[in-house]
Write a protein that binds this DNA or RNA. Structure first.
Lengths: 168, 168
DNA sequence: TTGGAATGTCAACAAAGCTGACGTATTGTG
DNA sequence: CACAATACGTCAGCTTTGTTGACATTCCAA
């Protein structure tokens, strides 16, 4: 019993109706649950949470990064990151070494055990992502990335691109 | 110093490399921050959190829904939902009415004030989504939705589709 | 050389998830 | 009708992960 778009609206703008946009919002919400489901299961077994996963992921992507840099990428306070980092260091998954040039800094790296957990987590997450990519096809994947990138905040996009450029 | 894909790999599978998939994972992480940033700001001003937003969103989408149905859509326990729902009812944003056919059930609806907050929140979120859609174009949007839908868990997708069908 | 900026740690608190147990009202069934 | 199952609410207690505030250490520049 709802109104469709007015007939005079150009075909090319149909994808901008409130209804289309709401569907995108709900898709984003539900998909994010799937996105985190597999790593969450693995982490729960080992007594870790999503925050540990994020730290491990970005230390792996950015070996030797400092605490300061890591928390700006993750977008949390240093106190919040510190708690997570401390348990990872105590458990021998992350190595923290005093900076050589600047002794205030701590450089973070994954240990062998940390790298192993990283692999386990990213394998699980990649498997799901790969299946979704395969089901949707290359054109859809390109669109997926385009929309996500357009959705980021400016400073967030900066971190994303800095990360992305590492292997491009 | 990384290896590219092996030369014998078909062009059409390049989008399935680990590197492409990792980029998708990071895009998803960073984009979700942007996705929630605007509503989060509005909610913080009013002393609410993301959990309140979700409840308000789905009550609006599904007027008269029961508590049981809502918590299965949201994927949380009744204790967790109840804490959020109680404050929304106390604050006069949500109305809970005893079921007519089955008096054990409570039917949830937004009050005028609740509908107003819902509009404020979804306007903010839609604005960003609309900008992203416009920047990416209709083909990209179609791909975006396809990949997200393929990423959902089976039972989650069921809720998504039930919701989606409301206006299709 | 000394005071301020930067880096990181400790303590305490809040939001929002969870489990488990229990009470109450209502419904449906043997 | 008696009783089990369902729907909802609540209490207590715990976990994760975010927050602010206070503080120690280190570096750098006036």
């Amino acid at each position: 019993m709802r109104e469709g778009p007015p007939p005079q609206m150009g075909q090319s703008l149909l994808f901008l109706t409130d209804d289309q946009i709401r569907k995108g919002i709900e898709a984003m919400f539900f998909a994010y649950r799937g996105f985190t489901a597999d790593p969450d299961r693995i982490l729960a077994e080992k007594g870790y949470g999503r925050a540990h996963h994020r730290a491990i992921h970005f230390i792996n992507r950015n070996p030797g990064t400092t605490v300061n840099n890591l928390l700006s990428v993750l977008g949390v306070t240093k106190q919040s990151l510190n708690r997570v980092l401390r348990t990872l260091i105590e458990d021998g998954l992350v190595a923290s070494t005093v900076g050589k040039r600047d002794k205030r800094e701590r450089h973070l790296n994954l240990t062998a055990a940390g790298a192993e957990l990283e692999r386990e987590l990213s394998d699980a997450q990649r498997d799901r992502m790969r299946a979704a990519y395969r089901a949707a096809g290359p054109a859809a994947v390109a669109g997926f990335r385009q929309v996500l990138e357009a959705m980021m905040d400016g400073d967030t996009r900066y971190h994303y691109e800095a990360m992305r450029d590492k292997t491009e």
